Amino acid sequence: MTSDTSLADDLALALRLADAADAISIDKFRARELHIDLKPDHTYVTEADLAVERAIREVLAAERPGDSILGEEFGTDGDARRQWIIDPIDGTANYLRGVPVWGTLIALAVDGVPVVGVVSSPALGKRWWAAKEAGAWLSENGGEPRRLHVSAVADLADASLSFQSIAQWDEAGYLDRLVALTRQVWRDRAYGDMWSYMLLAEGLVDAVGEFDVKTYDLAALIPIVEEAGGRFTSVTGDAGPGNGSSLASNGHLHEALLKALA
């Protein structure tokens, strides 16, 4: 594990990377001539996704040449134990439709464990970040950062759940369990993409579940949720961002959620 000092330096770098990403992504947001392609997996990629990831990679190549990189658009470079994990625009479908719920996700993982995370959403005017043992933070419209804490809700009957997408749960064979869970909680919504997890870290949502997710979709979210006091696993309770599903909660509800979905 890296030292606290180096993690602070890494976080500072990640925040600078987010600045560069925001300048590119917001400039192309709702542009009349945004170029869009369909990838082999039938998901969309825009010229902004590509430009953001290229810009981040260029800075990392100059400032962290010994680290490896995993990015959604350009794959993996290197095999170092320190790996930067990038989703240049999480919520591309929202981005290309002009919906403001999207953001750049930047993480640093050491030996596969995410220890730094930044989520920057310039269209919402918000940026969330965390580093291991340094707390989770939010700045709105460039204002003074405030520390984040998950909610204290301890009963499913009082909980607000974001399930992301009915189609995901249906395709994973969990739709019946999702419906049963929605009958146990106070409220259910599908806020979508990175925003659900950030609402959790802010204490405004109590649980989030999702399927069909990749490492780059989750790595930056994990330090923020955990440093805010929450818990982050797969739907089956496994740690790490590479299990294909996610279950994040305020911690108090986690065992009950795992039991409900088992």
Results as ranks from 00 to 15, higher is better:
L13K: 08
R147K: 12
T104C: 01
L261P: 01
A154I: 10
L178K: 04
V235C: 08
I166Y: 11
H254T: 04
D79F: 10
L221R: 01
V119C: 03
R183W: 07
L181Y: 00
R147W: 13
A48F: 06
I85E: 08
A93E: 14
L60W: 02
T76Q: 01
L13Q: 11
G71D: 03
K28V: 11
N141S: 15
A228L: 13
I26V: 12
R183F: 06
L96A: 05
H252I: 01
G135P: 00
M198A: 07
S139D: 07
R16C: 13
L200C: 06
L161Q: 00
G244L: 09
L148T: 06
V179G: 12
H252G: 12
I89V: 01
P88A: 00
Y174T: 06
Y216H: 13
S3F: 09
K126V: 13
Y95S: 06
A80M: 12
Y44I: 01
G125V: 05
A130S: 02
G71I: 06
E202D: 00
E73P: 04
I224L: 04
L178R: 01
D90K: 11
V52H: 03
D87P: 07
H149C: 14
A20R: 15
G173D: 04
T236H: 14
A131M: 05
G244T: 05
V185K: 00
A107C: 10
L105K: 10
V235T: 13
D111F: 05
G173R: 03
A219C: 03
I222F: 10
F29Y: 14
I85S: 07
E144L: 08
A93Q: 13
D37T: 14
D238C: 14
V150N: 04
G240A: 02
T76A: 02
R64K: 02
Y191E: 13
K126L: 14
E140D: 03
A12Q: 10
D4R: 11
V150L: 04
L11T: 03
D22P: 06
K39Y: 13
Y174I: 02
D10N: 08
D170M: 11
V101M: 09
V113E: 14
L7R: 13
Y197W: 07
T104A: 00
L11E: 08
S196C: 02
D188Q: 10
G244D: 07
A154G: 15
S121V: 08
R187D: 15
A180G: 10
G209F: 04
T233C: 03
F232T: 08
A262N: 15
E47S: 12
D206A: 02
E63L: 09
E133N: 11
R147C: 10
A260L: 03
A180D: 10
S234E: 05
T233S: 07
E144D: 09
K132Y: 12
A159D: 00
R177K: 03
P100V: 09
E140H: 02
V110A: 06
R82S: 15
P145D: 05
L258T: 09
L253C: 02
A262E: 15
E202I: 02
A48E: 09
R97C: 08
Y197N: 07
S165E: 00
S196N: 04
K28E: 14
L60M: 00
D41Y: 03
E226M: 01
S162F: 06
E171G: 04
W186K: 07
T46H: 06
F232Q: 06
A134W: 11
E171Y: 11
Y216E: 09
Y191I: 14
G91Q: 02
S162W: 06
